[in-house]
């Protein structure tokens, strides 16, 4: 048992993650009418060492598939993925990257400590077994069978396994999925305690609060594409946009919608019968236009929450490129 103190080779320039035109498509399920499924549909991403990045998106957005390619668990259909300038599998073998997987199975008939010993034995050099058990807060559970551990305890065990190679990049795929509120808070407390300087962390989540609380940067993913990418502050400024809605005189709706779309700062216009719903940075200007020039009535102005910004960005495919530009 030896402890690792690897020189940070590659820290001099190579990005932690570099994805270029990454595509992954799966063949359709046997017997179904579907054509092939593009889980990841052209992702370009550059993550520097030391960044803490959240992959935020709804279920089925392509987060896990993207991370699988970063970890060398899946080969891209086209495009390339590099980790510290290496092919992902090489980075895994070198102990540079490790992960806590959403569905990473554990052997139910082993104890916690046996599991850590078993995975530790696959590395040439690794952190001491008892040390990672302690860092993951599992010391009191070390002798317990995995089958007797709760979901949260099993997740902490996966975290202990991920700490073994002392990786420079740690990938967490929905690490708190299925945990209750307390277990989730405990898990992130453990993570915070361990967030040693310089370790790059990339985690996937569909909980906004998690992304907001832990990440410096949020990459919003929907439909296999990046729909927004920015610091948490930038993403939050999206939320400061307001939604203005009004009822327009019959017959003038289409013309008014076209005109509203040309106004600077308007990022979305939706028709709902005779009502239009406009999402814009400058709600006053839109309100003035609606009431004075377009003959609108029953005007409402609503401040969008972070939740709504998230829904707007990931919920449907319209104007995604425009929104992506705006956030950058």
């Amino acid at each position: 048992m030896t402890t690792t103190s690897r020189p940070l080779d590659g820290a001099s320039g190579a990005p932690a993650i570099e994805l270029r035109s990454l595509v992954k498509s799966f063949p359709p399920r046997r017997g179904s009418q579907d054509t092939e499924v593009r889980a990841v549909d052209g992702i370009d991403l550059h993550i520097e060492p030391g960044e803490v990045v959240a992959f935020l998106g709804p279920n089925g957005a392509g987060k896990t598939t993207t991370l699988d390619m970063v970890l060398g668990l899946t080969e891209p259909t086209s495009g390339t993925a590099e980790v510290f300038g290496r092919r992902p599998r090489e980075a895994v073998v070198g102990g540079h990257v490790s992960a806590v997987l959403q569905t990473g199975g554990l052997l139910r008939d082993l104890t916690v400590r046996e599991t850590v010993r078993m995975i530790a034995s696959t590395y040439v050099a690794h952190a001491p077994v008892d040390e990672v058990i302690d860092r993951a807060g599992l010391t009191l559970l070390a002798g317990r069978r995995v089958s007797k551990c709760s979901g949260g305890e099993q997740q902490r065990l996966r975290f202990a396994l991920a700490l073994l190679p002392d990786p420079r990049l740690l990938v967490l795929d929905e690490p708190t999925a299925g945990m209750d509120v307390t277990a989730r808070r405990d898990f992130w407390d453990t993570m915070h305690e361990d967030a040693s300087a310089g370790r790059t962390v990339v985690f996937a989540t569909h909980y906004l609060e998690e992304a907001d609380a832990f990440a410096d940067r949020i990459v919003l993913i929907a439909g296999g594409r990046i729909v927004a990418d920015g610091t948490t502050a930038e993403i939050r400024s999206q939320a400061s946009g307001r939604t203005v809605s009004a009822t327009l005189p019959p017959g003038s709706v289409a013309e008014s919608v076209a005109r509203l779309r040309t106004v600077e700062g308007v990022h979305d216009v939706v028709e709902r019968g005779s009502r239009v719903v406009v999402t814009a940075a400058d709600s006053d200007a839109v309100a003035r236009l609606l009431l004075l020039d377009l003959g609108g009535t029953d005007l409402e102005i609503v401040t969008a929450g972070l939740e709504q910004a998230f829904m707007t960005l990931t919920g449907d495919g319209r104007d995604l490129d425009a929104e992506k530009e705006l956030v950058r």
């Binding site: 668990l73 990473g104 199975g105 554990l106 052997l107």
Partner: peptide
């Protein structure tokens, strides 16, 4: 069976 229950993915994260 172990592998299809996800242990294969866990081992896939190691140099093994």
């Amino acid at each position: 069976v172990e592998r299809q229950q996800g242990w294969g993915r866990q081992l896939g994260l190691t140099p093994l």
